[in-house]
Structure formats: C-alpha cells, structure tokens
C-alpha cells in the first residue's frame, strides 16, 4: 500500500512541468538542462565556451528541423552520455536519488505523528 502511495507521489512530481516552461523558449530551457563538458560546473546555457556556443546553435537548428525536446535530449545523451543531462533520468541508477528524500520526508512525518499517538 505504502509503495503505491510513494509511486503516486513520484509520478506526480516527475510529471509536473518546470517553472518557466511556458515563458522562455524551449531553446533556452534545453540549454539550461545540459551540462557543459568544457567548464564542467556550468550549464550549457550559462557557459560561453566554444563548445557551449556551438551546442546552443545546434539546439536551435534541431528545433527548426522539428525535433522535440525529448529527442534532442536523447540525441545528446547518445553522443555524450547521461552525464550531460542535468535532470537525472529515473532508472535503476537513480531510484535512490529520487526516492530517498521522499522517504525521509515520510519518515519525518511519521515520527511527528507518533509523538501524538504515544501519549493517548
């Protein structure tokens, strides 16, 4: 039962959209979600390295060619590996990454509720 509940929460969280989706162009959004391979602490959007500038141009081209956001991500994932994506995919490697905070939240709630039940 608990697992179904957790799963529901996760799926809700995973599916809701990034804040600015509607406002800025997809182009910037994609660039922000990519990590630059030259200056490895920056996003492609923030970086001004040659690589990042080219990549931004390339995202623009791909969008004009009619590629969707997801297609561009998987294209770049194929080229550069999962590392380039700032938004970790939910898979075997990242179950703990996504679920652990939620579990901690639930556990915290349980501890607080327990305090009240104990006394009755």
């Amino acid at each position: 039962m608990k697992f179904i509940y957790i799963f529901l929460i996760i799926s809700v969280i995973l599916n809701f959209n990034f804040l600015k989706a509607d406002e800025i162009k997809t182009e910037n959004k994609i660039a922000k979600n990519l990590r630059c391979l030259i200056c490895q602490g920056q996003s492609v959007y923030d970086s001004d390295s040659e690589f990042a500038i080219s990549l931004k141009l390339m995202i623009k081209n791909k969008i004009q060619q009619g590629m969707s956001e997801q297609q561009i991500y998987s294209f770049l994932k194929m080229k550069y590996g999962e590392w380039i994506l700032y938004d970790p995919v939910f898979n075997r490697n990242t179950y703990f990454l996504w679920l652990l905070p939620i579990l901690i939240f639930l556990a915290g709630g349980a501890i607080i509720i327990k305090r009240f039940y104990n006394k009755k």
Binding site: I13, L14, F16, F18, L19, K32, N33, R35, S43, G81, E82, W83, I84, L85, Y86, D87, P88, N93, T94, F96, L97, W98, P101, I102
Partner: peptide
C-alpha cells in the same frame, strides 16, 4: 549522490537545477 554512484557503479551522472526544482518547489 553522483559521488556514491560513481564509486559503486562507475556511472557518471549530473544532478542539476531540474532535480532540485522538482523536489523542492511542491
């Protein structure tokens, strides 16, 4: 998490703003 994952499975991933936004904002 990326440090742990790399040591345990040798996979490298990045955790960036989208992750934090998704888990913190709601």
């Amino acid at each position: 998490y990326p440090i742990f994952l790399e040591v345990i499975t040798a996979n490298k991933i990045s955790v960036g703003p989208p992750f934090y936004n998704k888990l913190i904002l709601p």
